[in-house]
Design a protein around this nucleic acid. Structure first.
Lengths: 201, 201
DNA sequence: GTCTATACGGCGATAGAC
DNA sequence: GTCTATCGCCGTATAGAC
């Protein structure tokens, strides 16, 4: 067997800095721009040092994905505590976040044929969906009949529609987007009436 | 300006062979496996020859995308001629095709930060959607009220939901999929009644 | 624990010979 | 129409200095 490779501590400030810069780089230029040499020069360190913290490049991507995911779930739960009476709208708004969608798209692209990243992204999606589902089910009886739509199916739509809209917009497509968003939001207004008056068109 | 680079004819059989092998390679191992050297060895030629037909690798991807798209639109229109009374279900089934979805995912991933591919994919999506929309609008008056859903919005959903399902399944996620597919299909049965009896659960 | 230096083979792309 | 040589960048591995 090989000599155990030395790896930097997870508590290192340098490591955190590298993750920050890597996330920027990924958003600005895509995952293909996240290279040892490119990230190193952006962070003002050597390529070898980046490798010291992330021996394989996928290690960096997985760490990035998990850090993002933890922050997102915290953000979600903070919103749910603040507005416990409108979980549907919170899920809807949460899935409409552009930065997260852009990063998720990058990761899905990466995951396509790299199994360590696929496993990481599956874990992240499952955890997020599960946190949302828990809240949804809790108030499920208070909603009127859903025409046979299960909580899981509704959650899929509340998550999937904004994501698909953002995915299409990333390539410049926009047909039907405005209409479908308005369609869903009208139904949300029925299910979770707003206190404030609706904005004028 | 640079010297005009020599490029192989589009009618070349070698070129067609390379596109066939490239599509296989892309489906089996992802776009990252489509390299000059890799494709060359799979097709039994040299890397230089692949470059003769596709000077930049993106040229190959764009050619692949366009060839697929033309075949898909032909397939779509053949189905519409065969079953002119159920355009909604045809769009729905068309968007549920796994091979096309897998390739589209690869291309969307590629398009993320490569503008020539983004332009090509936008063109392809617009052409496909436009062909579908034309048929939908033609029979729009025959459908009952859609609760304010425009043809464009309905088309977005009929296309987007199966695509999102396939996208999630590609990473191993499946929560709510069965429910949401059944939900939509029940509505399709109402809008476009089947002649044959429905299958038993 | 942190970090540097160096080497290897594969990659896209170019220029030009047969 | 086909193929070779070459360039600079990539991920990765290793050896060793502080």
């Amino acid at each position: 067997m090989a000599t155990p490779r030395r790896v930097g501590a997870e508590t290192s400030e340098t490591r955190a800095l590298l993750l920050d810069r890597a996330e920027e780089l990924m958003l600005e230029e895509g995952y293909a721009a996240v290279t040892y040499r490119g990230l190193a020069s952006r962070a003002g360190v050597t390529g070898g040092l980046v490798q010291y913290y992330f021996p394989v490049l996928d290690d960096l991507f997985v760490a990035l994905l998990q850090r993002r995911s933890e922050r997102n779930i915290e953000r979600l739960q903070a919103a749910l505590e603040l507005r416990p009476d409108e979980p549907l709208r919170i899920v809807w708004e949460f899935s409409s976040d552009e930065t997260s969608a852009a990063l998720l798209t990058e990761f899905i692209a990466l995951a396509n044929h790299r199994k360590t990243i696929r496993a990481a992204i599956l874990d992240v999606i499952k955890r997020t969906r599960s946190a949302q589902l828990q809240v949804l089910k809790q108030r499920w009886d208070e909603y009127p009949a859903m025409d046979g739509l299960s909580p899981e199916a509704l959650l899929f739509l509340l998550h999937g529609i904004p994501k698909m809209v953002l995915l299409e917009e990333a390539v410049g497509m926009s047909s039907g987007h405005r209409d479908v968003l308005r369609f869903v939001e009208e139904r949300l207004d029925t299910l979770e009436p707003r206190r404030k008056p609706a904005r004028r068109p």
